[in-house]
Design a protein around this nucleic acid. Structure first.
Lengths: 111, 111
DNA sequence: TTGACATTTCCAGAAAGATCGAATAGTCAG
DNA sequence: CTGACTATTCGATCTTTCTGGAAATGTCAA
């Protein structure tokens, strides 16, 4: 991950509605959720939500796929892990941070 | 971690100079760095850097202590871990994400 | 092809954030 | 106390972002 994409990802998450939407999708797993379902869950006008989902998509944090009339969004776990890894990179100069905090959670790196 | 403090932490990191400064401090470890040293390393006017450091401090991501004439800043690893944990909370609805991605790196939780 | 449905794009105004020189405040050696 | 040093606050300007109704786009059943 590079500095520019990290800033882009972080600023995508740095907003009340977008953070809520992203966490909702993280918890929804690979099944994802339709835009309308997210709008209902968060109680946000659809035009506003669409703006926020586009923002998250542009940042690479979520993905979009069409299913009939609905657009299904889902979290991109690899990107999330990359972001966390970037934040903690070379933590404490590599000293006393062996294999734990210095490396990102690797569960979803291939997702 | 609550939604409001997460947004505050994320928006603190969602800026080129602040992200660079934070990563510098993460890598500096508990020794930290003086404001002037950070300004030199990042090549930012001191008044701008001060604005950004205040922002990071307000968000709880870094701490300040005085050492003679210098103000030394250092990363707050507990807060960083809490933020990561909040992002990944209840990942995938708790399924297929056992103990790995669902929990934050715990190395510095007591720092 | 008509109508209903799901979602996005367009638009304008209101609010928040970034920048940096100059002025101000805290710390210390002599 | 004076002067040098380190860093923050002030102030004014510029840019970016958020918001939500209305209109447009894409999808599908009948």
């Amino acid at each position: 991950m590079e500095a520019m994409s990290a800033v882009s990802a972080l600023s995508a998450l740095a907003q009340e509605h977008r953070l809520s939407a992203f966490r909702l999708l993280v918890q929804a797993g690979s099944a994802g959720m339709a835009a309308g379902a997210i709008a209902d869950a968060l109680d946000i006008p659809s035009s506003s939500l669409s703006f926020h989902l586009a923002h998250l998509t542009r940042a690479g944090l979520i993905r979009q796929r069409r299913q009939s009339r609905s657009l299904i969004y889902s979290a991109d776990y690899a990107e999330m892990s990359a972001l966390v890894g970037y934040l903690m990179e070379n933590c404490c100069g590599g000293v006393e941070c062996e294999t734990d905090a210095a490396s990102p959670p690797a569960e979803h790196l291939a997702a």
